[in-house]
Design a protein around this nucleic acid. Structure first.
Lengths: 141, 141
DNA sequence: TCTATTGTTTGTAACGATTACAAACTGCAC
DNA sequence: GTGCAGTTTGTAATCGTTACAAACAATAGA
């Protein structure tokens, strides 16, 4: 159990990323990184901030999520064309996705092994391999 | 080489799916299913229809793509939150995706093997496993 | 062949998520 | 403290997609 001081933790991450530690970024960073791995949408994080008494505009939430993603602090997960999810788990891993209610769950990288993969086309490299396991209720959906 | 009469082919598919063979559905069906496997967006198919001299509204293109998908004639591919792709290849297979230009390419099902997969959570079944191999230019993107 | 019925198509308005933008604001270096 | 570059904000704009009601067309039956 390596519990660190949340504040300093987020502040450090911002510094390393070269992002000015503003009140908004610190607050969103703490919401995102304190506690376990999370999957959030911009809208959801904005609501959460409001409820936590933090005043941040939706535009800033979008900006921040993208900056964090650019800095490698977050990862974008594409599973649903309706909304964009951001994942605080930036390690190699995959996802379970329940279309019915939009629930997203991590699958540890070592729980999925890919035995064979075609080579990338000429002049291209594989940037990442995403495995999405789509789930449905046992009753059919 | 099993080249069949396109018209009849599409007409047959519609009949089997219980979809009334209207002028619009037949035209879109022919654009989609004549020739090899394709990946289209609603917008792109609409343009293509216009250029082919077929008058179809964008609303109908959307309706038709969804009906075809519901009937199992098409498959929806989620790789990019900006737009929805429809794939005429409904066999078990996966995809290469180049984010830069939105290019999507099939990977035959037997070219990807998954060695290990976690069990679905309680009360859930695995509906499908999607593997998306994201590509970038060798130069970095 | 005509007709009624039901399924389709259409244009357009509405929507929801996301981005653009210019003005106001705030860290931070000097 | 000041000034500047980086940030935030509210709002308008954008974009793909869906909703909707009216016009239309395919089909079964008379």
């Amino acid at each position: 159990m390596t519990q660190e001081r949340p504040y300093t933790q987020t502040l450090g991450r911002l510094r390393e990323a070269g992002l000015r530690p503003t009140r908004q970024r610190l607050a969103l960073g703490r919401l995102l990184f304190d506690g376990g791995d999370r999957h959030v949408t911009a809208e959801a994080l904005h609501d959460e901030a409001q409820k936590a008494g933090v005043s941040v505009s939706l535009a800033t939430v979008y900006n921040t999520l993208h900056q964090f993603t650019g800095a490698g602090l977050l990862r974008e997960v594409v599973v649903d064309s309706a909304r964009t999810y951001f994942d605080t788990n930036i390690e190699d891993h995959h996802h379970f996705f329940v279309e019915k209610d939009g629930a997203l769950m991590d699958i540890a990288g070592h729980d999925v092994t890919i035995g064979k993969l075609p080579a990338a086309p000429d002049g291209m490299d594989i940037a990442r391999v995403d495995v999405i396991v789509r789930l449905q209720d046992r009753t059919g959906k």
